[in-house]
């Protein structure tokens, strides 16, 4: 995508175009890059340059920043909180006061969508963080120590790959996201640090959300571990590793301070691509009625509720659905762009 001939009017075109009607050819920028490389520019500077030239990825990033800011700020400042009902009006189509209309209880859909965005994004980011932590450590340890341990650890991953994990997530969420489990006790203990009365049933929907991202995170680290293992195996024979070892750096420090930072490119790329995947799964679970519960909202749950009155109040489905789709679209494009930028050798997929 980034190799396309640049269209005129792009701000970062390095050489001002003096011939009207003749867009600057690619040559000057390529030449410029060579020059930089000779000066010893880092991988990150190069990658940033490549990424900036990818207009679709940059656009996606900008839209994402805007959406995240909207979801963070809007629920705080709106005159129509996400759970404020107006039963006398009921469901109304989009208007000046309510941009996305209102739902059956007269709640402002725009507020519900931005609030649901917080939930969906939080689940996406936190579950990805869990899967990132597990996958990176697991893959790095397997790759670094090699031999029997590696064979065993990778065999476990192979077996997990053949299991219907999504079915397991459905089972786990349906069975264990309730008050009688040890997970709830953990949640209460954790919440006790922040809230006065952690056993308040008001917090139960929050627990379900926590459970969902925990379950998703512990299920989606497999590909990450494979990628990191491959990177570590490629790196561990190199001189800097030997040098570090010869001055007495411990194994764990070597893995986490020297090997993983050097494998950061593919890790970042795959992390960016995991976020939309996890968000999609959360939305899927909420759609099936297993994830986020009333009065909280998430995009999947809003669509699920909306579908029931699709013919009467289509806006209840269309707006949250489009928000979800746009967000996933941007994450995917940004991840693709990062991959092209950070690792030009890897082709798409």
């Amino acid at each position: 995508m980034s190799e396309e001939a640049p269209t005129p009017g792009i701000a970062e075109a390095p050489v001002p175009d003096t011939r009207p009607g003749h867009p600057a050819p690619e040559q000057p920028s390529v030449h410029g890059e060579h020059h930089e490389a000779e000066k010893g520019s880092s991988l990150w500077v190069d990658a940033w340059k490549r990424l900036r030239k990818n207009r679709v990825a940059v656009g996606s990033g900008v839209i994402l920043v805007f959406l995240v800011a909207l979801c963070l700020i809007h629920p705080e400042v709106t005159a129509y909180p996400y759970d404020k009902t107006a039963l006398e009006t009921g469901a109304t189509p989009p208007s000046w006061a309510h941009w996305f209309g209102t739902d059956d209880y007269g709640r402002d859909l725009f507020s519900r969508v931005t609030f649901g965005g917080r939930v969906s994004l939080a689940v996406g980011v936190l579950a990805t963080f869990i899967s990132f932590s597990i996958g990176v450590s697991y893959g790095a340890i397997a790759g670094y120590f090699g031999g029997r341990l590696d064979a065993l650890m990778m065999r476990v991953v192979d077996v997990l790959y053949t299991l219907p994990l999504l079915v397991f997530v459905i089972l786990l969420t349906a069975f264990f996201a309730n008050k009688d489990t040890i997970f709830y006790d953990w949640f209460v203990a954790l919440l006790g640090l922040f809230a006065d009365n952690p056993k308040d049933p008001e917090y139960l929907p929050l627990f379900k959300i926590f459970f969902v991202f925990g379950a998703l995170g512990t299920m989606s680290w497999l590909t990450m571990s494979r990628i990191v293992r491959g990177q570590v195996i490629a790196l561990r024979g190199q001189l800097f590793v030997e040098a570090a070892r010869s001055v007495g750096v411990s194994d764990l420090r070597l893995i986490f301070r020297h090997l993983i930072p050097n494998a950061l490119g593919p890790i970042i790329v795959y992390t960016t691509l995991t976020i939309p995947e996890v968000m999609l799964t959360e939305a899927f679970l909420s759609f099936l009625g297993l994830g986020t519960e009333e009065p909280l909202s998430s995009w999947g749950q809003l669509v699920s509720n909306g579908v029931e009155s699709l013919d009467l109040n289509p806006w209840l489905t269309v707006f949250p659905g489009l928000m979800l789709a746009v967000t996933l679209f941007c994450f995917n494009f940004l991840g693709d762009g990062l991959r092209d930028a950070l690792d030009p050798r890897i082709r798409k997929d």
């Binding site: 579908v307 289509p314 659905g321 996933l328």
Partner: peptide, 17 residues
Amino acid sequence: MLGISVPRFVLAPLLVL
């Protein structure tokens, strides 16, 4: 990319609509 990003439960209601 659009096909990957639009979940089935968003696509389905839109098609029905």
